[in-house]
Amino acid sequence: MNKSKNLISFLIFIAPSFLGVIIFVLMPFGDVLKRSFSTAITGQFVGVSNYKTIFQNQAFLLAVKNTLRFTFICIPLLVVIGFLIAWPLSKLKNAGIIKSIYLFPLAMPTATIVLVWKMVFYKQGFLNILLTKIGEWLGTWGMIQTDYLDTEAAFWVLVCSYIWKNTGYTVVLWLAGIAGIPAEFLDAAKVDGAGSIQRIWYIVLPNLKGSLYTIVILSFLNSFKIYREAYLVAGAYPHKSIYLLQHTFNNWFVNLELDKMAAAAICTGGFLFIIILLLQKMWDRDEAS
């Protein structure tokens, strides 16, 4: 009897959330799935024709290449840089102000960040002024007026912006994980003669797998949100090095090519889902071992 009451209470408790997921997540996703097999105007069933079309579309393939390149460069850099900052901070007793400084970029509006980009990297920007002054001082080059956001350098500007903006929460997550490691473990390793690098490798990092999993997942998802900065800087058709999946989706939406957009959305969602499942499987296997 108690089990039945507990079950009923549990179902009543989760019903609102579960209903919300059905209405606002599963039903829209089902509609997108249906549209991916239909024409945009008439809704006629066309099978996998939309999927063939997007994988023959050069703009989509370029966007996939750039997005994957951006993700697989940024995530390792963010994880490593965050830890290299968090480890020394974890030894400070009063690091609250420093942590607040690292979190400050998250509080800055995207439009403000974009304005800073333009002030630094456009033809008459601060970077070119600085390089010109250095060239005049050394007597080796003249005036420099490179529009970095219209060259291959735009990709690395985007990478630096992503790392600058997201390092703060990465540092905080690393610090939370480091704080959960029993001090006795580190003290015992130190007594046994382990050096600082050995303590980090054999004690600290194995105990931070949970933090690493959380950081990687959040960083992976956030890497797909960098579109706002790229769009505000260079518009719907930026330099090819920073033409991302979201640019493709936006341009298809403006042109009402909803069938292609639906097929691409299903592929992107499926890819993200598979990656998260693989990370979860790796995490569960490490936990079991």
Score class of each variant (00 low, 15 high):
residue 3 K to T: 12
residue 6 N to I: 10
residue 7 L to T: 12
residue 14 I to L: 11
residue 19 L to Q: 01
residue 20 G to Q: 10
residue 21 V to N: 00
residue 21 V to E: 02
residue 26 L to P: 00
residue 31 D to V: 09
residue 32 V to W: 02
residue 34 K to Q: 03
residue 38 S to Q: 15
residue 40 A to K: 05
residue 40 A to Q: 03
residue 40 A to M: 02
residue 41 I to W: 09
residue 41 I to F: 07
residue 44 Q to M: 10
residue 45 F to T: 10
residue 46 V to D: 04
residue 49 S to M: 04
residue 51 Y to K: 08
residue 51 Y to P: 02
residue 56 Q to T: 15
residue 56 Q to G: 15
residue 56 Q to C: 14
residue 58 Q to R: 13
residue 59 A to G: 05
residue 60 F to N: 05
residue 62 L to V: 14
residue 64 V to Q: 00
residue 64 V to G: 00
residue 65 K to G: 05
residue 67 T to S: 09
residue 78 L to M: 11
residue 82 G to I: 13
residue 84 L to A: 01
residue 90 S to V: 08
residue 91 K to S: 11
residue 91 K to Q: 10
residue 94 N to E: 05
residue 94 N to Q: 06
residue 96 G to I: 00
residue 96 G to W: 01
residue 99 K to W: 01
residue 99 K to N: 10
residue 100 S to N: 06
residue 101 I to T: 10
residue 103 L to V: 13
residue 104 F to Q: 05
residue 104 F to I: 07
residue 105 P to Y: 04
residue 118 K to M: 13
residue 118 K to D: 08
residue 118 K to F: 07
residue 122 Y to C: 03
residue 126 F to L: 14
residue 126 F to K: 08
residue 127 L to K: 12
residue 128 N to E: 02
residue 128 N to W: 06
residue 133 K to Y: 08
residue 133 K to Q: 10
residue 134 I to M: 11
residue 140 T to M: 12
residue 141 W to T: 06
residue 144 I to L: 13
residue 146 T to N: 12
residue 146 T to G: 08
residue 147 D to M: 06
residue 147 D to E: 15
residue 153 A to C: 02
residue 154 A to R: 02
residue 155 F to P: 00
residue 156 W to K: 08
residue 157 V to K: 08
residue 158 L to T: 03
residue 162 Y to P: 03
residue 162 Y to F: 15
residue 165 K to D: 02
residue 165 K to M: 04
residue 169 Y to R: 13
residue 172 V to S: 06
residue 177 G to F: 07
residue 177 G to R: 12
residue 178 I to C: 10
residue 180 G to P: 03
residue 183 A to E: 13
residue 184 E to S: 12
residue 185 F to A: 11
residue 187 D to V: 14
residue 187 D to M: 12
residue 190 K to P: 01
residue 191 V to N: 11
residue 193 G to S: 12
residue 195 G to K: 06
residue 196 S to Y: 09
residue 197 I to N: 04
residue 199 R to D: 03
residue 201 W to Q: 09
residue 204 V to P: 04
residue 210 G to Q: 04
residue 213 Y to F: 15
residue 217 I to L: 15
residue 222 N to V: 08
residue 222 N to C: 12
residue 222 N to K: 14
residue 229 E to Q: 08
residue 229 E to D: 08
residue 230 A to W: 05
residue 230 A to L: 06
residue 230 A to T: 11
residue 233 V to N: 02
residue 235 G to R: 09
residue 235 G to C: 03
residue 235 G to A: 07
residue 236 A to Q: 03
residue 240 K to V: 15
residue 242 I to L: 01
residue 242 I to R: 00
residue 242 I to K: 00
residue 244 L to V: 14
residue 246 Q to N: 09
residue 248 T to L: 11
residue 249 F to S: 04
residue 250 N to C: 08
residue 251 N to M: 13
residue 253 F to A: 13
residue 254 V to K: 13
residue 257 E to W: 09
residue 265 A to F: 04
residue 265 A to R: 03
residue 267 C to F: 12
residue 268 T to Q: 05
residue 269 G to D: 03
residue 269 G to K: 04
residue 269 G to S: 11
residue 270 G to D: 02
residue 270 G to M: 06
residue 270 G to E: 03
residue 275 I to R: 10
residue 276 I to S: 03
residue 276 I to P: 00
residue 277 L to W: 00
residue 279 L to H: 13
residue 279 L to N: 11
residue 280 Q to W: 03
residue 281 K to W: 02
residue 287 E to Q: 11
